[in-house]
Nucleic acid binder design. Structure first.
Lengths: 211, 211, 211, 211
DNA sequence: CATGAATGAGAGTTCATTCAT
DNA sequence: AATGAATGAACTCTCATTCAT
């Protein structure tokens, strides 16, 4: 009789993907399960049925997006052997993904800005995974004498810091550009941004002559 | 002896400074006025007496810390005429201040991660001010042929992005270093970090040979 | 046996009927949702679950009692064709209902005493409805030459004004009668009151001789 | 040095007269001492200095306006010996005063609509006073064979009920008239209203022929 | 799987009132 | 006579979570 039957996957997937958007927009606390239920067109109790509690849902969201990002980057790198090109792929893949899924930089920055060592283990590990990937590329580059010696952590934060911030501040930068004459890169598109960054990173790392 | 203090400045100052810590730790929504009142040893109603409402308090906090940071940087730069050295002062002052007041990078990142064009005007302006300061230095450097041409916005975010993240992630990086063998710059102190960053920025900008 | 009732109608009905009493006794502002919840033996949150907010509850109360009154009067009038008798029915039905549900005159007077044009539309319409009913009777009476020409609004307020006030002031009038020798109609019952009023209204309107 | 010195009378008078307006507009509970202080341009504590507490202020307001009304009516009646003309004076004076001081009908109706025998004695007495005045006129009229026998309480409420309601509902009646074709006496002025009422009361009471 | 009713804790905010100056 | 700071209780409303059906 009821046409409200959905398969389990469908429902939990809907919840998860709406949760991403809301958590990125409002943060953990300011996102209410009522909003989420309404946006997802499901009964509020279902959220608890699938995700145990709000915290559980939040972690599911974080793990999900981190896994997504890591997978894509890994896949794109797989067939490249040159560390320099791997790094370029890392940056442009990261940029493209983050741009297409703006909840990603928003949630990630929020999470990283709360200096708490109290992340759940599973989340902590997923965060590490992404950095490890980056770190290994740098390491390989050094060993193969492609790169100068450098601090991978700092470099990592310079890259993802600037990329994430460029994406999350798009609207503010636009507004700022309209109100004054300062250059806020207001209409730089993601391609321009990632190419610019790649160039700069190459300068910092590179032994090659072409700069 | 009396527990009724009659000192307007004292009370509102206490509220403000405790608010900085709490907002940076928990974010806007997760910070409750009850916590704040208790931590500040004042009556909850006084918060509203001095700051009208939670939002008002939050804005007061943001404006206050941005003004502080901007003032210190400005002061330190005043007597330097060389853009290259001005930039170095900018970075190291920023780093030192942010390190000494860890609520600053935390709150700033949280704020920048929520891409809302709906910041209060006064806050928006204060944020711009800091960037303008930076931007002018870069501009001057270019005009005096000290610097290569560069994108000031991207450079700005590379600098403050990495500085802020290094500070807010201190604990996580420590934990990560203990659990595995990856290099997370776990025991880099703020001096090392800012010197490293200065060196790299000089490479990106500099026309001079000495690096 | 279980103290968790699962009866939507029951709960919201309890809230509504207790709200009538409290709003009439204390007015809108002085009625607290805590009192109401306690009196209704329900969880405070349920009030908001069913009525959105205090204002919404208040409007629900007003609409409900006005609809009730209007319906009863309409029903009693339906089979009477003579305007004179219709008017008599209007008055005595109004009096009886108001006497049985003393929250009615109390709330109505409070509402009418705040000359705000800012009533919600739905409430405003329900108030009009009652007056329209009255107004049509008078109109019909005039057209059929039963009544002299008269001002329906003034007459309406003379009738409901005195009826409502007689009901709401019952206690004060009693007290006044005990303290002094003035006649406050202290022990007039509702029947006497409405008959008296009917007689007077007939004098004001009537062309007939029998008074 | 300070120019904030006011004489005591001035300040308390300002408070009182602003209180009248606010209490009539919002009722007792919804009127806050903060609003009142701001509107009166005085320090909130002054209200308590002059009137002890909110309740005290409210009673002062009630007594004040009732005394005012009573005095004016009494004064205007003093030189009239004919009960019929006295009654006419009562009505038109009441109407004029209530119209000029719209807080009067508003507060009075609110007060009378709360059927509580718990009025303060002084207030209760002042309310009686006005009715006694009315009552005596009727009594005299009867004794001098001017008036038919009648119920003074009912007549009193018919008169002040309709007058007060006509004044407090002015705006609603206007709005109702615009939205539909029913006659709400929307542009009856106070003179018309009181004359109409006098005519009707004379019909009800009068032995004279001229109607 | 799904729903709507229910709950209890706590959130932000207001308010009458007091008190030291 | 006047002020501004302080207080504590209360108020409206929200939220994560549970449970019977």
């Amino acid at each position: 009789m009821s046409n409200k039957k959905r398969d389990s996957y469908q429902t939990s997937h809907t919840i998860l993907s709406n949760a991403k958007v809301l958590f990125s927009k409002y943060g953990f606390s300011a996102t209410s399960m009522d909003m989420l239920a309404e946006k997802s067109n499901i009964n509020k109790a279902m959220i608890f049925y699938y995700f145990k509690n709000k915290q559980g849902l939040y972690e599911a969201v974080l793990v999900d997006i981190l896994k997504d990002m890591t997978n894509i980057i890994e896949k794109n790198i797989k067939d490249i052997s040159n560390p320099k090109e791997q790094l370029e792929s890392f940056i442009s893949t990261y940029a493209t993904f983050a741009y297409k899924h703006p909840y990603f930089p928003s949630i990630l920055l929020k999470e990283l800005s709360t200096s708490s060592a109290v992340l759940s283990d599973i989340l902590f590990e997923n965060m590490q995974m992404l950095y490890k990937l980056f770190s290994h590329i740098i390491q390989a580059g050094k060993e193969q004498k492609y790169f100068y010696d450098t601090n991978p952590m700092m470099l990592y934060f310079m890259i993802i810091g600037s990329l994430n911030l460029m994406i999350t501040t798009k609207e503010i930068r636009l507004k700022a550009a309209q109100n004054s004459d300062i250059d806020t890169c207001a209409d730089c598109d993601i391609e321009t941004i990632s190419q610019y960054l790649i160039k700069k990173v190459n300068i910092l790392l590179g032994k090659d002559d072409e700069n």
